[in-house]
């Protein structure tokens, strides 16, 4: 009786998660996979085969975009880490009480508006008739309007800005758990700032670094809006290709194959990152 009751409770508690996993993750992916394995041989005629994947490898534009997206995402992740670490360290270790809360909130505020508005904000600043261009002309550093948009640097700026919070939060959490006396002990034993960071602070923060990097990398790789809006037509972001296949060309088969390739890519890079840093998924994400 009680066994049945507790079983029922457990099923009910698990139900939302299970429904979510099956309906929104498992079924669409299974369906997508099946779609990606269909070769179009005629009008409404399909055969089972790898033709969609073969197209990807035979067309340099596709895999060039694929590699470019991966490298740009890795670079964006690294840049976010380099900028986010000092910020997180400052919030976690140098501030106390109210100012800590305020700083944390300041990191959060950009996320109160939609990504579209945030990206549009960058466009206002960076476009040819925008603020930066006008300012440079005003102070006399430029003689004519400068277009800052529609290049890789603009994409990078947008990606880093969008992901910053997801890097700072896990870093603040792990750095918070670093006892101040560890750092003091490091100084006391003759350590300098550099050696203490290298041997104590960074090893301690490693799980936070890795989990922040995983989240930021996945967000960048799967980002659509920022690269397209800030990078323009030449952005060559892989999600853009997927969008084109699905929406513009109605080639769902090709789009699904691209989707699966992106999934494989992100899984591989996360796995490689974990192996390189000597961390495990359970240690970094299970905190």
């Amino acid at each position: 009786m009680t066994g049945d009751r507790s079983r029922l409770t457990m099923i009910l508690l698990m139900a939302p998660l299970l429904i979510w996993l099956t309906a929104l993750i498992f079924i669409p992916h299974a369906e997508m996979f099946l779609v990606s394995m269909r070769e179009k041989v005629g009008v409404r005629q399909y055969e089972f085969g790898f033709a969609n994947y073969a197209t990807f490898f035979n067309e340099p534009l596709y895999w060039n975009t694929f590699v470019r997206t991966a490298l740009m995402s890795v670079a964006a992740t690294a840049l976010t880490l380099v900028i986010g670490f000092p910020v997180a360290y400052y919030i976690a270790k140098m501030t106390r009480g109210r100012s800590k809360t305020i700083l944390f909130l300041l990191c959060l505020i950009p996320f109160w508006v939609s990504e579209l508005v945030r990206t549009y904000g960058w466009m206002i600043l960076l476009r040819e008739s925008g603020l930066f261009s006008g300012l440079l002309q005003y102070v006399g550093l430029a003689s004519q309007p400068i277009e800052f948009l529609y290049n890789d640097a603009a994409i990078m700026v947008g990606l880093v800005y969008t992901s910053m919070l997801f890097m700072v939060v896990p870093l603040v959490t792990t750095l918070d758990s670093l006892d101040d006396s560890m750092i003091e002990a490091g100084y006391d034993l003759g350590g300098t700032g550099v050696s203490i960071w290298r041997e104590i602070v960074i090893p301690h923060a490693m799980p936070g670094i890795v989990s922040g990097c995983i989240v930021v990398f996945m967000l960048s790789l799967g980002n659509y809006l920022t690269p397209i809006l800030l990078g323009g037509k030449d952005s060559l972001w892989f999600t853009g290709l997927i969008y084109t296949q699905f929406i513009t060309r109605f080639n769902w088969e090709q789009g699904a194959a691209f989707g699966f390739l992106l999934l494989a890519l992100s899984s591989f890079i996360v796995w490689a990152g974990l192996k390189l840093s000597g961390q495990t998924l359970s240690r970094t994400m299970g905190r």
Partner: peptide, 18 residues
């Protein structure tokens, strides 16, 4: 502190777990 000829044993020892 890192130039002083003293060493300190901290209250919670502050051994480096890493």
């Amino acid at each position: 502190p890192n130039k002083r000829p003293v060493s300190m044993v901290f209250q919670h020892l502050a051994l480096f777990p890493m």
